[in-house]
Protein backbone atom coordinates (compact mmCIF):
# COMPACT_ATOMS: atom_id res chain seq x y z
CA UNK A 1 0.00 0.00 0.00
CA UNK A 2 1.32 3.41 -0.90
CA UNK A 3 1.19 5.86 1.94
CA UNK A 4 1.81 9.41 0.92
CA UNK A 5 2.68 12.27 3.18
CA UNK A 6 -0.55 13.93 2.15
CA UNK A 7 -2.59 11.08 3.54
CA UNK A 8 -0.47 11.31 6.69
CA UNK A 9 -1.30 14.95 6.94
CA UNK A 10 -5.00 14.35 6.36
CA UNK A 11 -5.05 11.69 9.02
CA UNK A 12 -3.36 13.93 11.55
CA UNK A 13 -5.54 16.86 10.67
CA UNK A 14 -8.73 14.82 10.94
CA UNK A 15 -7.84 13.28 14.26
CA UNK A 16 -7.01 16.66 15.74
CA UNK A 17 -10.14 18.28 14.30
CA UNK A 18 -12.35 15.51 15.58
CA UNK A 19 -10.86 15.69 19.00
CA UNK A 20 -11.16 19.47 19.08
CA UNK A 21 -14.77 19.20 17.91
CA UNK A 22 -15.60 16.90 20.80
CA UNK A 23 -13.83 19.22 23.19
CA UNK A 24 -15.78 22.17 21.93
CA UNK A 25 -19.04 20.37 22.56
CA UNK A 26 -17.89 19.50 26.08
CA UNK A 27 -16.80 23.07 26.62
CA UNK A 28 -20.26 24.28 25.61
CA UNK A 29 -21.90 21.77 27.95
CA UNK A 30 -19.56 22.73 30.76
CA UNK A 31 -20.09 26.45 30.40
CA UNK A 32 -23.88 26.29 30.14
CA UNK A 33 -24.29 23.21 32.31
CA UNK A 34 -26.87 22.09 29.75
CA UNK A 35 -26.46 19.16 27.49
CA UNK A 36 -29.03 20.51 25.08
CA UNK A 37 -28.02 23.86 23.73
CA UNK A 38 -29.71 23.81 20.36
CA UNK A 39 -32.78 21.89 19.23
CA UNK A 40 -30.62 19.70 17.01
CA UNK A 41 -28.72 18.39 20.04
CA UNK A 42 -31.83 16.36 20.80
CA UNK A 43 -34.93 17.50 18.89
CA UNK A 44 -37.38 15.31 20.78
CA UNK A 45 -36.09 16.40 24.16
CA UNK A 46 -36.06 20.03 23.01
CA UNK A 47 -39.77 19.88 22.21
CA UNK A 48 -40.41 18.15 25.52
CA UNK A 49 -38.48 20.84 27.39
CA UNK A 50 -40.52 23.56 25.73
CA UNK A 51 -43.72 21.75 26.60
CA UNK A 52 -42.72 21.44 30.22
CA UNK A 53 -41.73 25.05 30.31
CA UNK A 54 -45.24 25.97 29.18
CA UNK A 55 -46.68 23.75 31.88
CA UNK A 56 -44.50 25.47 34.44
CA UNK A 57 -45.60 28.87 33.22
CA UNK A 58 -49.24 27.77 33.34
CA UNK A 59 -48.83 26.37 36.82
CA UNK A 60 -47.63 29.73 38.09
CA UNK A 61 -50.80 31.23 36.72
CA UNK A 62 -52.96 28.44 38.16
CA UNK A 63 -51.34 28.94 41.53
CA UNK A 64 -52.18 32.65 41.49
CA UNK A 65 -55.73 31.82 40.54
CA UNK A 66 -56.01 29.25 43.28
CA UNK A 67 -54.77 31.77 45.83
CA UNK A 68 -57.29 34.30 44.67
CA UNK A 69 -60.13 31.77 44.72
CA UNK A 70 -59.04 30.74 48.20
CA UNK A 71 -59.21 34.36 49.38
CA UNK A 72 -62.59 34.79 47.77
CA UNK A 73 -64.07 31.63 49.20
CA UNK A 74 -62.44 32.16 52.60
CA UNK A 75 -63.96 35.62 52.84
CA UNK A 76 -67.33 34.31 51.68
CA UNK A 77 -67.13 31.67 54.38
CA UNK A 78 -66.28 34.23 57.05
CA UNK A 79 -69.12 36.47 55.97
CA UNK A 80 -71.57 33.59 55.94
CA UNK A 81 -70.42 32.42 59.34
CA UNK A 82 -71.24 35.92 60.62
CA UNK A 83 -74.55 35.59 58.82
CA UNK A 84 -75.26 32.31 60.63
CA UNK A 85 -74.53 33.92 63.99
CA UNK A 86 -76.79 36.77 63.03
CA UNK A 87 -79.63 34.47 62.04
CA UNK A 88 -79.24 32.46 65.22
CA UNK A 89 -79.51 35.68 67.21
CA UNK A 90 -82.61 36.66 65.23
CA UNK A 91 -84.09 33.24 65.88
CA UNK A 92 -83.39 33.61 69.61
CA UNK A 93 -85.17 36.95 69.57
CA UNK A 94 -88.10 35.41 67.73
CA UNK A 95 -88.30 32.55 70.22
CA UNK A 96 -88.07 34.96 73.12
CA UNK A 97 -90.75 37.23 71.82
CA UNK A 98 -93.12 34.71 70.27
CA UNK A 99 -95.10 33.97 73.42
CA UNK A 100 -97.17 36.52 75.27
CA UNK A 101 -95.66 35.38 78.57
CA UNK A 102 -92.18 36.62 77.87
CA UNK A 103 -92.97 39.57 75.72
CA UNK A 104 -94.59 42.88 76.26
CA UNK A 105 -94.79 46.02 74.24
CA UNK A 106 -91.91 47.67 76.02
CA UNK A 107 -89.39 44.87 75.52
CA UNK A 108 -90.61 44.28 71.95
CA UNK A 109 -90.01 47.92 71.12
CA UNK A 110 -86.53 47.86 72.53
CA UNK A 111 -85.73 44.60 70.83
CA UNK A 112 -87.02 45.81 67.47
CA UNK A 113 -84.11 48.26 67.58
CA UNK A 114 -81.72 45.34 67.86
CA UNK A 115 -83.41 43.67 64.90
CA UNK A 116 -82.99 46.88 62.92
CA UNK A 117 -79.29 46.69 63.75
CA UNK A 118 -79.24 43.04 62.70
CA UNK A 119 -80.87 44.02 59.42
CA UNK A 120 -78.21 46.67 58.74
CA UNK A 121 -75.49 44.23 59.75
CA UNK A 122 -76.90 41.63 57.39
CA UNK A 123 -76.79 44.15 54.54
CA UNK A 124 -73.20 45.01 55.35
CA UNK A 125 -72.30 41.30 55.41
CA UNK A 126 -73.98 40.85 52.04
CA UNK A 127 -71.96 43.76 50.74
CA UNK A 128 -68.60 42.30 51.77
CA UNK A 129 -65.76 43.24 49.44
CA UNK A 130 -62.49 41.54 48.60
CA UNK A 131 -59.93 43.78 46.92
CA UNK A 132 -62.69 46.24 46.05
CA UNK A 133 -64.99 43.66 44.48
CA UNK A 134 -68.34 42.71 45.97
CA UNK A 135 -68.23 38.98 46.47
CA UNK A 136 -71.95 38.25 46.78
CA UNK A 137 -73.08 40.19 43.71
CA UNK A 138 -72.63 37.44 41.17
CA UNK A 139 -71.15 39.07 38.07
CA UNK A 140 -72.09 42.52 39.35
CA UNK A 141 -68.93 43.00 41.28
CA UNK A 142 -68.87 46.76 40.99
CA UNK A 143 -72.01 47.73 42.90
CA UNK A 144 -73.35 46.66 46.28
CA UNK A 145 -75.47 43.55 45.77
CA UNK A 146 -78.01 44.48 48.44
CA UNK A 147 -79.49 47.96 48.83
CA UNK A 148 -80.56 49.53 52.10
CA UNK A 149 -84.08 48.11 51.73
CA UNK A 150 -82.65 44.63 51.56
CA UNK A 151 -83.38 44.16 47.88
CA UNK A 152 -80.90 42.07 45.90
CA UNK A 153 -79.26 44.08 43.11
CA UNK A 154 -76.74 41.50 41.93
CA UNK A 155 -77.21 38.60 39.60
CA UNK A 156 -76.59 34.89 39.86
CA UNK A 157 -73.28 34.84 37.96
CA UNK A 158 -70.76 32.31 39.12
CA UNK A 159 -67.14 33.07 38.33
CA UNK A 160 -65.49 29.91 37.11
CA UNK A 161 -61.74 30.01 37.33
CA UNK A 162 -59.15 27.47 36.31
CA UNK A 163 -57.04 26.37 39.27
CA UNK A 164 -55.25 23.56 37.45
CA UNK A 165 -55.29 22.34 33.91
CA UNK A 166 -58.95 21.65 33.11
CA UNK A 167 -59.97 21.97 36.76
CA UNK A 168 -62.52 24.74 37.14
CA UNK A 169 -64.15 25.91 40.34
CA UNK A 170 -66.54 28.75 41.00
CA UNK A 171 -64.86 31.13 43.31
CA UNK A 172 -67.96 33.03 44.40
CA UNK A 173 -71.42 32.34 45.81
CA UNK A 174 -74.02 34.74 44.45
CA UNK A 175 -76.08 36.40 47.16
CA UNK A 176 -79.20 35.14 45.49
CA UNK A 177 -78.10 31.65 46.35
CA UNK A 178 -76.80 32.39 49.85
CA UNK A 179 -79.59 34.60 51.19
CA UNK A 180 -82.63 32.70 49.91
CA UNK A 181 -83.68 29.30 51.07
CA UNK A 182 -85.34 28.64 47.70
CA UNK A 183 -83.63 30.91 45.18
CA UNK A 184 -85.79 29.87 42.23
CA UNK A 185 -89.00 30.92 43.89
CA UNK A 186 -87.49 34.03 45.44
CA UNK A 187 -88.88 37.44 44.74
CA UNK A 188 -85.44 38.59 43.53
CA UNK A 189 -85.40 35.89 40.94
CA UNK A 190 -89.01 36.37 39.89
CA UNK A 191 -88.64 40.10 39.59
CA UNK A 192 -86.05 39.52 36.95
CA UNK A 193 -83.05 41.17 38.58
CA UNK A 194 -81.06 38.22 37.45
CA UNK A 195 -82.81 37.53 34.16
CA UNK A 196 -82.59 33.88 34.98
CA UNK A 197 -79.63 33.46 32.74
CA UNK A 198 -77.40 31.42 34.92
CA UNK A 199 -80.04 28.77 35.20
CA UNK A 200 -79.92 28.32 31.48
CA UNK A 201 -76.32 28.87 30.63
CA UNK A 202 -72.95 28.69 32.25
CA UNK A 203 -69.46 27.23 31.96
CA UNK A 204 -66.49 27.76 29.75
CA UNK A 205 -66.76 27.55 26.02
CA UNK A 206 -66.52 24.17 24.46
CA UNK A 207 -65.44 22.95 21.11
CA UNK A 208 -67.88 20.79 19.25
CA UNK A 209 -66.99 17.75 17.23
CA UNK A 210 -66.26 19.83 14.13
CA UNK A 211 -63.70 21.82 16.07
CA UNK A 212 -65.80 24.94 15.99
CA UNK A 213 -65.87 27.07 19.05
CA UNK A 214 -69.19 27.58 20.35
CA UNK A 215 -70.22 29.01 23.60
CA UNK A 216 -73.09 26.88 24.63
CA UNK A 217 -73.54 27.16 28.31
CA UNK A 218 -74.81 24.11 30.05
CA UNK A 219 -77.95 24.11 32.20
CA UNK A 220 -77.35 23.89 35.89
CA UNK A 221 -79.13 20.96 37.41
CA UNK A 222 -77.85 21.90 40.86
CA UNK A 223 -80.25 24.80 40.95
CA UNK A 224 -83.13 22.93 39.43
CA UNK A 225 -82.95 20.48 42.28
CA UNK A 226 -83.49 23.10 44.96
CA UNK A 227 -86.82 24.18 43.54
CA UNK A 228 -89.53 24.59 46.09
CA UNK A 229 -92.54 26.74 46.61
CA UNK A 230 -91.72 28.37 49.95
CA UNK A 231 -88.83 30.76 49.89
CA UNK A 232 -87.33 32.51 52.85
CA UNK A 233 -85.17 35.56 52.35
CA UNK A 234 -82.77 36.81 55.01
CA UNK A 235 -83.74 40.45 54.66
CA UNK A 236 -87.46 39.86 54.27
CA UNK A 237 -87.57 37.68 57.38
CA UNK A 238 -85.62 40.21 59.43
CA UNK A 239 -88.02 42.90 58.25
CA UNK A 240 -90.97 40.65 59.06
CA UNK A 241 -89.60 40.02 62.54
CA UNK A 242 -89.11 43.72 63.10
CA UNK A 243 -92.60 44.57 61.87
CA UNK A 244 -94.04 41.79 64.02
CA UNK A 245 -92.22 43.18 67.06
CA UNK A 246 -93.39 46.72 66.38
CA UNK A 247 -97.01 45.71 65.78
CA UNK A 248 -97.07 43.02 68.47
CA UNK A 249 -98.18 40.40 65.92
CA UNK A 250 -97.04 37.30 67.77
CA UNK A 251 -98.25 34.92 65.03
CA UNK A 252 -96.10 36.68 62.57
CA UNK A 253 -93.12 36.51 64.91
CA UNK A 254 -93.74 32.80 65.44
CA UNK A 255 -93.97 32.20 61.73
CA UNK A 256 -90.46 33.58 61.20
CA UNK A 257 -89.04 30.84 63.40
CA UNK A 258 -89.40 28.17 60.81
CA UNK A 259 -88.06 30.47 58.14
CA UNK A 260 -84.97 31.31 60.18
CA UNK A 261 -84.36 27.60 60.61
CA UNK A 262 -84.56 27.13 56.88
CA UNK A 263 -82.22 30.05 56.31
CA UNK A 264 -79.69 28.81 58.86
CA UNK A 265 -79.75 25.41 57.19
CA UNK A 266 -79.30 27.03 53.82
CA UNK A 267 -76.40 29.24 54.87
CA UNK A 268 -74.74 26.27 56.50
CA UNK A 269 -75.28 24.22 53.36
CA UNK A 270 -73.65 26.95 51.31
CA UNK A 271 -70.81 27.08 53.78
CA UNK A 272 -70.20 23.38 53.53
CA UNK A 273 -70.21 23.76 49.76
CA UNK A 274 -67.56 26.47 50.12
CA UNK A 275 -65.65 24.21 52.48
CA UNK A 276 -65.55 21.43 49.95
CA UNK A 277 -64.42 23.85 47.24
CA UNK A 278 -61.61 25.06 49.50
CA UNK A 279 -60.65 21.50 50.13
CA UNK A 280 -60.68 20.92 46.40
CA UNK A 281 -58.32 23.83 45.88
CA UNK A 282 -56.00 22.51 48.52
CA UNK A 283 -55.82 19.00 47.14
CA UNK A 284 -55.44 20.34 43.60
CA UNK A 285 -52.57 22.57 44.72
CA UNK A 286 -50.94 19.67 46.49
CA UNK A 287 -51.25 17.56 43.37
CA UNK A 288 -49.81 20.41 41.35
CA UNK A 289 -46.85 20.68 43.72
CA UNK A 290 -46.08 17.02 43.29
CA UNK A 291 -46.50 17.30 39.56
CA UNK A 292 -44.18 20.28 39.47
CA UNK A 293 -41.47 18.43 41.32
CA UNK A 294 -41.69 15.54 38.90
CA UNK A 295 -41.62 17.99 36.03
CA UNK A 296 -38.58 19.77 37.37
CA UNK A 297 -36.78 16.47 37.77
CA UNK A 298 -37.69 15.42 34.27
CA UNK A 299 -36.58 18.73 32.80
CA UNK A 300 -33.36 18.44 34.68
CA UNK A 301 -32.76 14.96 33.34
CA UNK A 302 -33.47 16.15 29.85
CA UNK A 303 -31.47 19.31 29.67
CA UNK A 304 -28.93 19.49 32.46
CA UNK A 305 -25.45 18.27 31.83
CA UNK A 306 -23.89 15.92 34.31
CA UNK A 307 -20.97 17.99 35.51
CA UNK A 308 -18.89 15.06 36.69
CA UNK A 309 -19.44 13.35 33.38
CA UNK A 310 -18.46 16.49 31.48
CA UNK A 311 -15.30 16.88 33.54
CA UNK A 312 -14.37 13.23 33.16
CA UNK A 313 -15.00 13.36 29.41
CA UNK A 314 -13.00 16.55 29.15
CA UNK A 315 -10.01 15.03 30.94
CA UNK A 316 -10.27 11.99 28.73
CA UNK A 317 -10.49 14.10 25.61
CA UNK A 318 -7.48 16.13 26.66
CA UNK A 319 -5.44 12.98 26.95
CA UNK A 320 -6.62 11.89 23.52
CA UNK A 321 -5.66 15.22 22.01
CA UNK A 322 -2.24 15.22 23.63
CA UNK A 323 -1.44 11.72 22.51
CA UNK A 324 -2.72 12.49 18.99
CA UNK A 325 -0.37 15.42 18.83
CA UNK A 326 2.64 13.61 20.13
CA UNK A 327 2.06 10.66 17.81
CA UNK A 328 1.56 13.06 14.92
CA UNK A 329 4.86 14.70 15.61
CA UNK A 330 6.62 11.39 15.10
CA UNK A 331 4.60 10.48 12.05
CA UNK A 332 5.15 13.74 10.21
CA UNK A 333 8.72 14.50 11.14
CA UNK A 334 10.92 12.09 9.25
CA UNK A 335 11.26 11.69 5.51
CA UNK A 336 13.85 9.71 3.65
CA UNK A 337 15.46 13.05 2.80
CA UNK A 338 16.66 13.35 6.37
CA UNK A 339 18.78 10.29 5.99
CA UNK A 340 20.45 11.02 2.67
CA UNK A 341 23.53 13.15 2.94
Amino acid sequence: MRITHNSNHDLVQNSILQSKGRMEKLQREGSSLKKINTPSDDPVAAAKILQMRTEKENNISFRDTAKLAEAYLGNSDNALSQMTDLLIRAKEIAIGQSSGASSNEGTRFGISEEVSQLFKQAISIANTRVAGRYIFGGYKTNSPPVNDKGNYQGDDGEMMVEIAKDVFINMNVPGLEAFNSQPRSSKDYREGQVEGRIFEDRGPAGVDADGNQDIEFQPRSEYEAIQGPQNANVFQELQRLRTGLLTGDLDSIRSTLDQFDQLIDKVNAVRSQIGSRLQGIESTSAAMDRHEITNAQLTQNLEDADLTQVMADMANEETVLRSTMSVSQRLLQPTLMDFIK
Binding site: N58, R133, G137, G138, Y139, K140, T141, N142, D155, G157, M159, M160, V161, E162, K165, D166, F168, N172, R197, D201, R202, G203, P204, A205, Q213, I215, F217
Partner: peptide, 20 residues
Protein backbone atom coordinates in the same frame (compact mmCIF):
# COMPACT_ATOMS: atom_id res chain seq x y z
CA UNK B 1 -70.77 36.79 27.95
CA UNK B 2 -73.52 39.14 29.12
CA UNK B 3 -74.00 42.83 29.33
CA UNK B 4 -73.56 44.85 32.46
CA UNK B 5 -71.69 42.15 34.33
CA UNK B 6 -68.21 43.33 35.32
CA UNK B 7 -67.46 40.08 37.11
CA UNK B 8 -68.45 37.88 34.20
CA UNK B 9 -65.27 36.12 33.09
CA UNK B 10 -66.68 33.49 30.79
CA UNK B 11 -65.22 34.87 27.56
CA UNK B 12 -61.80 35.49 29.10
CA UNK B 13 -61.65 31.98 30.46
CA UNK B 14 -62.88 30.55 27.18
CA UNK B 15 -60.04 32.33 25.36
CA UNK B 16 -57.47 31.10 27.87
CA UNK B 17 -58.90 27.63 27.30
CA UNK B 18 -57.81 27.80 23.64
CA UNK B 19 -54.28 27.17 24.82
CA UNK B 20 -54.85 23.46 25.24
Amino acid sequence: ATKDAPGDNRIAIAISGLQD
